[in-house]
Structures are given as structure tokens and as C-alpha cells.
Design a protein around this nucleic acid. Structure first.
Length: 300
DNA sequence: ACCGTCACGGTTGAA
DNA sequence: CCTTCAACCGTGACG
């Protein structure tokens, strides 16, 4: 809950104090730390730089986006590492992956000949773009799955889709980069004014709300994709649920002692931008920002 | 000082 | 239902 410029949890403990002097970057970092602490109680660790991380789990999407944005502003990897309190190795890995695949998502980017875009798929993608010219590559992928154009096995890679979008943009208006990618990385509200023939430049300071909104939107897509893929094969989903049940039971066993010391209010229906990483274990408060955007903050 | 790389301990999901 | 294992995660250290 938000009380004036003070963010508190349900017990009234002060979590974060807002001030007009705080930069969006500061608030983003704070939120990420808070989210980690609340969503993974007991699992979070602190690295050498003082950053909070959960071993084995990917960085929050907001942080991944900020790494890319800072890099595109010309900030060195070592400075990004220090500023965001993320290990240099991790920053390097995320940047390399982005440069090679165009993806900021955790997880492997499958690349094989079977992932090339066939003429038929190209046709469908062009139809999507006609409908919605500023689609993200990942949105295209989701829609290919959703409409049954592709299955997981022949789904084109993000790289292939990005290239197609890029070549299409080059043909249409001479723009050097995918507009979807631009929309992803740019903070400008009126990007039409800023378009050039070069790779788009990015403006600081970053909007925390745009970052969080973006993360929420993209995760929504990913959750949908996950559900959709599960629907594809009844057999597959039975395996998935079976494994999940087994794991949850295991978790229950291990957390029983911990929750005795810290009772948890359970609300199943809400997920956050961390949705893919969490078990349903918290209730949430939506915080609204001055520009009308919002984000969810869990409380216990 | 910076950056690429890799072993390590962890998580996740398919089999 | 449980276990195993491959693939992934970020950290930290090395060169």
C-alpha cells in the first residue's frame, strides 16, 4: 500500500520512501530489490556489488531491459555492472545474447534450419504487420503459435523474425531498425519525430513506469504463450502438471518450517512481471504512477 | 581497468 | 508419484 510518499507492506512496515529527487533508475533498482526480497523470501542473496539476486533464477526483466538501454546509450559494461549491481559476467552475457539474437529474454534461443521462415510463414507475418505495423518480434512469434501457423518445432527464431521485420522496414520506409525493437527500447512517446536512418538513440532518464509496464505486457504474452503451448499437447501438459505437483509438494515440505515463523496470505489469481518465476504466494497492491501507468507490489 | 570466458551451485521441466 | 538429467540461471574468479 502507498501512504503519501511512503510505500509500506500490509504490516505497516516502511519498504520504500518516495521523493521527487529520486531518479527513475534509483526507484527501478529499489523495486527490483524489494520484489526479489518479497517474492523469494529466504532465497535472495547479495552479490559482491551489493545487488540482490536469486541463485538459479533469471534477473528481473526490468533490469535486463535497463542493461540493454544503458549499453545503447554508450555506457560501458563495467559501469552498467556497477550501476545496477549486477556481476560483470552477467551483463556481458546478456549484452552478447542481445547483440547476437535480438532477445532480452532468459532462456535458449533455438537456432536451426528448421527455424527458418518459410514463404508461407513469411506471408502470414506480413499480414500481421499490415494489421499492426509496430509489432514486436516476440508478438509475431506468439501470434504464429496462437493462430496455429507454427508449432513449437517449426517456430522461426527471434533472430529470423527480427531480420524479416528489419528488411521489411528497410523496403517500406528506409528505416534501419525494426520499429518493434525501437518501441521496446525507446522511451520516447512520439517516436515518429525521432526516426532516422540510423539505429535509434535512447534518452535518459528512463521511465520506471514504461519499463515496468513493458515488462508486465511482455510477461503477459509469455504467460499466454506458455498456456497456449500447454494446450497444444494434452500429453505434454499432463507431464507438466505432474512434475509441477511433485515440485510444489516438495516445496511445501521444505517451506513448512519457514512459514511457521512467517505466515503467508495466499492469493492465487494474481501474477506480476515476475510471474514466470514465482509460486502463487502473495497478495498484491497496485501502485499508480503520475502518468497513469501502474505496477503490482506484493505484500504479506 | 576492462572484458570474455568458465566452473560452480542453484532452478526448472522433460522423460 | 518420484527421480534423474540436461539446459538454463547469475556469480565470482581467472587470464
Amino acid at each position: 500500500m502507498v501512504n503519501g510518499h511512503l510505500l509500506t507492506n500490509i504490516a505497516g512496515e516502511h519498504i520504500l520512501q518516495f521523493s521527487p529527487t529520486h531518479t527513475a533508475a534509483y526507484l527501478t533498482d529499489k523495486f527490483c530489490s524489494i520484489m526479489d526480497g518479497l517474492l523469494f523470501p529466504g532465497q535472495e542473496r547479495v552479490n559482491q556489488l551489493g545487488g540482490v539476486f536469486v541463485n538459479g533464477k533469471p534477473l528481473p526483466k526490468a533490469l535486463r531491459i535497463r542493461i540493454i538501454q544503458l549499453a545503447r546509450l554508450g555506457v560501458r559494461a563495467s559501469d552498467i555492472s556497477r550501476q545496477l549491481r549486477i556481476s560483470h559476467g552477467c551483463v556481458s552475457k546478456i549484452l552478447n545474447k542481445f547483440y547476437e539474437t535480438g532477445s532480452i529474454e532468459p532462456g535458449a534461443i533455438p537456432s536451426s534450419k528448421s527455424r527458418e521462415i518459410t514463404p508461407e510463414i513469411t506471408k502470414r507475418i506480413e499480414a500481421f504487420i499490415l494489421e499492426q505495423p509496430d509489432m514486436f518480434s516476440w508478438e509475431v512469434r506468439d501470434r504464429l503459435l496462437l493462430e496455429g501457423v507454427c508449432i513449437k518445432a517449426n517456430l522461426p527464431s527471434m533472430e529470423a523474425i527480427s531480420q524479416l521485420l528489419k528488411s521489411r522496414n528497410d523496403n517500406c520506409d528506409g528505416h534501419g531498425a525494426s520499429r518493434g525493437l525501437k518501441r521496446c527500447l525507446s522511451n520516447s512517446e512520439s517516436e515518429e519525430d525521432q526516426e532516422t536512418t540510423e539505429i535509434p538513440k535512447f534518452q535518459a532518464p528512463f521511465s520506471i513506469s514504461s519499463i515496468l509496464n513493458l515488462a508486465e505486457k511482455k510477461d503477459k504474452g509469455r504467460r499466454y504463450k506458455k498456456e497456449k503451448v500447454q494446450e497444444e499437447s494434452e500429453e505434454e501438459s499432463q507431464v507438466w502438471f505432474s512434475n509441477r505437483r511433485a515440485r510444489l509438494r516438495k516445496e511445501e515440505y521444505y517451506t513448512e518450517t519457514r512459514t511457521q515463523a512467517r505466515p503467508v496470505e495466499v492469493s492465487k489469481s494474481v501474477t506480476t512481471s515476475y510471474g514466470a518465476l514465482t509460486s502463487p504466494s502473495a497478495s498484491f497492491t497496485r501502485i499508480f504512477f503520475s502518468n497513469g501507468s501502474s505496477c503490482l507490489v506484493p505484500h504479506y
